[in-house]
Amino acid sequence: MRSRSFPFLILVPIACWYVVFLVWPVINSFRTSFYEWNVIDPSFSPFIGLRNYIELLNDHVFIKSFWNTIIYVFLKTAIGVPLSLAVAVLLMRLKRGRDLHLFFIFLPAVCAVAAMSVLFRWLYQPTFGLFNTILKMLGLPPQGFLSDPAQAIYAIVATDIWQGLGYGTVIFLAGLMDIPVDFEEAAKIDGATGWQSFFKVTLPLLGNVTLFVVVTTLIGAFQVFDRIAVMTNQGGPGTSSYVIAYFIYRYGIFHMRVGYATAAAVIMFFMIIGLTLLQMRALKPRWRY
């Protein structure tokens, strides 16, 4: 007999876990953001209304974190996604060695961001790093990379694009393989060039897959933390590579300004909700094919 209680026997403990380790922390983030939270004795935490938020909007470090996050998410998605699609199309064309190439291209994606950040920090090292050595060999001026406030965040997102390339490639490749050959054949018979058939036939058919890759890439890039924590000295040089997740960590843990940090967390929460709604609206017509 199908027992009626079984689903609840399973779901009640899981629901409890969700309430304790997810819902409660989210509610607490909202609550503490209205207090000047006292870490040593929380009962001495004065309610200050929206003052944390007002201070945030006037805090140049937070504004910097905000824009850096936007730049980071934009570059990671706008460059990373088309690049992985291009690589997937390239791999589709290959007559041999596809699996081996895929193995190498996906390799960085399975490794820890922290370990790869350590590696790139060394490659970016201005005096004896590999990149500047190559630039010098080519007769080009050496760059500051991570030590240059104007370059740091771009140098960091570049490593993310490198490491994440294989993730999008694998998904796009699977999507491309799912498209029946007839469609492209038909386009060819109708006289479409390679580019036309790609943009008019293949790409629309990939809509669903593209949506998935874009959404997961956006959400992932939005949360960037490890790279900043490992590749920079406390978001430096200065505050030039702060992002929101790192801001929350620095202020909440190091400066012990819990209320202030959770106010930033609440802003991050609404940013991601806005981003999701925006995506749903922009991409909905292509949801199914």
Binding site: Y18, F21, V258, T262, V266
Partner: peptide, 17 residues
């Protein structure tokens, strides 16, 4: 929908908990 919530949003209350 919980998949959407960035870890950084809950990390401080989770730490306190």
């Amino acid at each position: 929908s919980s998949m959407m919530i960035p870890f950084a949003v809950i990390v401080i209350p989770l730490y306190m908990l």
